[in-house]
Write a protein that binds this DNA or RNA. Structure first.
Lengths: 106, 106
DNA sequence: AATATTGTTCGTAATTTTGCGAATAGTTTT
DNA sequence: AAAACTATTCGCAAAATTACGAACAATATT
């Protein structure tokens, strides 16, 4: 009965995963990854949600650290946070590679 | 103003990410990945949550398709679903590799 | 100074998530 | 048949998520 505390890595990975856990946010990140449509307005025109809802999703991604916005009047230029993105990549890779897909299963 | 519909891939990736979006579920998957503690009871002893809550988290992972349970009386043997895991790996890899980390950002 | 543009915040509502203990269901053992 | 064991489901509550339109702030243009 050794109740183990969760590790910081597990918390961090879950935090990133949670941020990716909505199709709209996946779409946002894909647009930013392609470096197209980096302005709120551009995304607002493409994504099937209200502007205010988009702001909320962008904020989620900001809070998770995956993106940041730069104010270039009159618009805000959103960009992926390379440092955090690299960390996310590493954590996801670690987890996903941990499974030997050739093993037997019951 | 071309409101695009989200793709099935985006929905699927978000579904997987959402399932990974809780530290307890990350811990569960890591245990299953290592193929240790594959029984509910074993996990229950290690993880700092109630048994009933653990069942809920296992169910989330099952609903997302990432794991499945086999009844081997009197316990249930949980295992990662290799097929879905491979799909998740592919989708995450695709997204995470899409960013050129050496590019400039504003 | 008034107007237009951009994006966030506010107010509200419906739904989902997370958590626990108690009760339940299904097996096996006594 | 009764008792023991394992794991899920139920009932409940608190908190978080998702969504929208209206109102607001900040800046640029007329």
């Amino acid at each position: 009965m050794t109740k183990e505390k969760l590790t910081t890595e597990q918390e961090q990975l879950a935090r990133f995963a949670k941020a990716l856990g909505h199709p709209i946010r996946v779409a946002i990140l894909q647009m930013l990854a392609k470096q197209t449509c980096c302005y709120h307005g551009d995304m607002s025109e493409v994504l099937p949600i209200a502007k205010s809802t988009l702001s909320q999703h962008l904020n989620e991604l900001k809070e998770a650290g995956l993106i940041h916005g730069t104010f270039t009047p009159p618009t805000i230029y959103y960009c992926i946070n390379n440092e955090k993105w690299a960390l996310a990549k590493q954590l996801f890779d670690n987890l996903l590679a941990e499974v030997d897909l050739s093993r037997e299963c019951y």
